[in-house]
Simulated scan of single mutants.
Amino acid sequence: MIRVERPGVQTTLQDAGRHARALGVPAGGAADPVAWRLANALVGNPPDAAALECTLVGPDLHFLEGALVALCGAPFGARLDGQPFGRGRAVRVQAGQTLSLGTTARGLRAVLAVRGGLEGEVAFGSRATDLKSGFGGLAGRALQRDDVLRRACPLPDVAPPRARLSPGLGTPLGPRHVLRVLPTAEASPALLRALVGPPLKVSAQADRMGVRLDHRVEVQADPGRVSLPNVPGAVQVPPDGRPILLLPDAGTHGGYAAPLVVASVDRPRLGQLRPGDTLHFVQVDPAWAHAALRTQETELRRAEGALTWWYNRP
């Protein structure tokens, strides 16, 4: 239903990710899951629908069939047949039209959802593209020119809701970030002093596996340290002392010390970090982290519920 005329810097098919970490397979999935959920909700998709994740510069997509689409996340300069295309709402695209996603001055990634979801290779129960392993999505790779995207499942053609999402629902964008973190058992007083509080700069070394920071801390080598499980949001400190923030495609275990982990409520922000952004780590306790996540989830589910009602109303 869609032909790719220009693929963009890195456009991949993503969904909620996979549940196969016990097999050594990264969870993967959308780097900004909030943008992914909201875009899918805007077009009335089921919660597991795959959508396009666009990074820094988006694609040009020629629609061979009409479709209902929604764009959420970073403010990409999107145009439909040369006319401005709005974010945060469902928009009908006619057969023969071309949607062009330019670049963004803030944040890094946007999600484009199509009503009915997008078809892709299923691996370990998910269509999410794992670029390093080469599976999921479109043969485990980013979009290429002349690729053809197909709808995953037909859904009734309905009028889109006139509502526009509140900007406060989306993931906060840069260039300055405050990330709430929790210390782990590996958090020494020296590492906490070095990481929590000072301004940290995002380096150009960034991908879906992790984001390295232009900051150096003193690390005590531990030759006896064993490889331990990794989770997205962990803050690793390798031997060179330059911290790495782990993103969804990071490996499931590793040998670097991980003294901090970003609270779940702030993990979507990791997908929007771009080189040159500044961030501060602020330490919180588990009770605060749980309460903040419950508040975020309540707001997201309220929006999803209202949009579900619209598409399923009598």
Rank of each mutant, 00 (worst) to 15 (best):
residue 2 I to R: 03
residue 2 I to V: 14
residue 3 R to H: 08
residue 4 V to L: 10
residue 4 V to K: 04
residue 6 R to K: 14
residue 8 G to N: 10
residue 9 V to A: 14
residue 12 T to V: 14
residue 15 D to S: 03
residue 15 D to A: 02
residue 25 V to F: 09
residue 25 V to H: 06
residue 26 P to M: 06
residue 27 A to K: 00
residue 27 A to N: 00
residue 28 G to P: 04
residue 29 G to Y: 07
residue 32 D to S: 05
residue 33 P to I: 08
residue 34 V to F: 08
residue 35 A to Q: 10
residue 35 A to F: 11
residue 41 A to F: 09
residue 42 L to G: 03
residue 42 L to Q: 06
residue 43 V to I: 06
residue 46 P to N: 09
residue 48 D to M: 07
residue 48 D to A: 15
residue 50 A to D: 05
residue 57 V to M: 14
residue 58 G to F: 11
residue 67 A to D: 01
residue 73 G to E: 05
residue 76 F to C: 06
residue 79 R to A: 14
residue 79 R to P: 00
residue 80 L to T: 06
residue 83 Q to M: 12
residue 92 R to H: 07
residue 94 Q to N: 07
residue 101 L to R: 12
residue 102 G to M: 13
residue 103 T to G: 15
residue 104 T to I: 02
residue 108 L to N: 01
residue 110 A to C: 14
residue 111 V to D: 00
residue 112 L to H: 10
residue 112 L to P: 05
residue 113 A to V: 06
residue 114 V to S: 01
residue 114 V to P: 00
residue 116 G to Y: 03
residue 119 E to T: 07
residue 126 S to M: 07
residue 127 R to G: 01
residue 129 T to L: 08
residue 129 T to G: 01
residue 130 D to N: 14
residue 130 D to Q: 10
residue 131 L to Q: 08
residue 132 K to G: 00
residue 133 S to H: 13
residue 134 G to S: 10
residue 140 G to I: 08
residue 141 R to W: 11
residue 141 R to G: 13
residue 141 R to D: 08
residue 143 L to T: 09
residue 143 L to A: 08
residue 143 L to Q: 07
residue 147 D to L: 09
residue 151 R to Q: 15
residue 155 L to I: 03
residue 156 P to R: 13
residue 157 D to G: 04
residue 161 P to R: 11
residue 161 P to S: 15
residue 162 R to L: 14
residue 169 L to I: 11
residue 173 L to D: 02
residue 174 G to L: 09
residue 174 G to T: 07
residue 176 R to I: 03
residue 192 L to R: 15
residue 193 R to I: 01
residue 194 A to N: 04
residue 194 A to R: 05
residue 200 L to Q: 08
residue 200 L to R: 06
residue 204 A to F: 05
residue 205 Q to N: 12
residue 206 A to I: 14
residue 211 V to K: 00
residue 213 L to D: 02
residue 213 L to P: 02
residue 217 V to R: 05
residue 218 E to R: 13
residue 218 E to W: 08
residue 224 G to N: 11
residue 225 R to A: 13
residue 228 L to R: 13
residue 229 P to D: 05
residue 232 P to L: 08
residue 237 V to P: 05
residue 238 P to I: 12
residue 240 D to K: 10
residue 241 G to R: 11
residue 249 D to C: 04
residue 251 G to M: 11
residue 253 H to I: 04
residue 255 G to Q: 11
residue 256 Y to H: 13
residue 257 A to P: 00
residue 257 A to N: 01
residue 261 V to P: 00
residue 261 V to W: 00
residue 262 V to N: 01
residue 265 V to D: 00
residue 266 D to S: 05
residue 271 G to A: 04
residue 272 Q to A: 02
residue 283 Q to G: 00
residue 284 V to T: 13
residue 284 V to G: 02
residue 288 W to K: 01
residue 290 H to Y: 04
residue 291 A to I: 02
residue 291 A to Y: 05
residue 297 E to G: 03
residue 298 T to K: 13
residue 301 R to A: 12
residue 303 A to E: 12
residue 307 L to V: 10
residue 309 W to I: 07
residue 311 Y to V: 03
residue 312 N to D: 13
residue 313 R to C: 06
